[in-house]
Amino acid sequence: MSPASNIIDFNLYRKRKQAQQIGRLMWALYAQQSGLAAQPHGNTHIASNAPRLA
């Protein structure tokens, strides 16, 4: 195994983390607007931190 194979691809890591954050935000907004109480995978803190829309 070459030494380069152990290097973390930070660009790919950053893109994946950003996509996860966007997905969580989109779910929180959807759940808030539709009035859903249940959250996927028990992440109830996501929707509670989202700003409320009148």
Rank of each mutant, 00 (worst) to 15 (best):
S5N: 09
A38S: 15
P40W: 10
H45N: 07
W27G: 00
Y13S: 13
S48F: 02
G42H: 05
R52N: 04
S5T: 10
S34H: 11
R24C: 00
S5M: 09
A38M: 13
A50S: 04
R52A: 06
M1P: 07
R24Y: 05
Y30L: 05
G23E: 05
T44F: 02
G23N: 04
Q21G: 06
N6H: 03
Q21L: 08
W27L: 06
S2L: 09
A4H: 10
A54C: 07
N11H: 05
N11Y: 05
R52C: 01
M26G: 03
R14T: 08
A31R: 00
Q18W: 04
Q18R: 14
S34F: 08
A31F: 03
P51I: 08
G23A: 09
Q33N: 13
L12R: 11
A28T: 03
N11L: 12
P51V: 10
A54W: 04
P3E: 02
M26L: 13
Q39E: 07
S5C: 09
N11A: 15
I8M: 11
A50F: 13
Y30P: 01
G35E: 02
G35C: 04
S2D: 10
A54G: 15
K17F: 06
L53H: 03
R16N: 14
G42S: 04
T44E: 05
K15Q: 09
H45S: 03
W27C: 03
A4I: 13
H41P: 00
I8V: 15
N6I: 11
H45A: 01
L29S: 08
T44M: 03
Q20G: 07
I22A: 06
D9E: 05
Q21T: 04
Q21M: 07
I8Y: 12
N6V: 07
P40G: 09
P51A: 12
Q39D: 01
S5K: 14
P51K: 03
A37P: 09
A50Y: 14
Q32T: 15
P3A: 08
A31L: 02
N43A: 08
W27S: 09
I8K: 12
L53I: 14
H41L: 01
Q18N: 07
R14F: 15
H41D: 03
H45G: 02
A50H: 11
S5F: 12
Q33P: 00
I46M: 06
A4L: 11
G35H: 09
A54Q: 10
G23K: 02
K15R: 12
W27I: 05
H45T: 01
Q39G: 01
L25G: 04
N43Q: 06
R52F: 00
A4M: 11
N49G: 12
I8E: 14
R52P: 00
A37M: 15
L53K: 13
L25H: 06
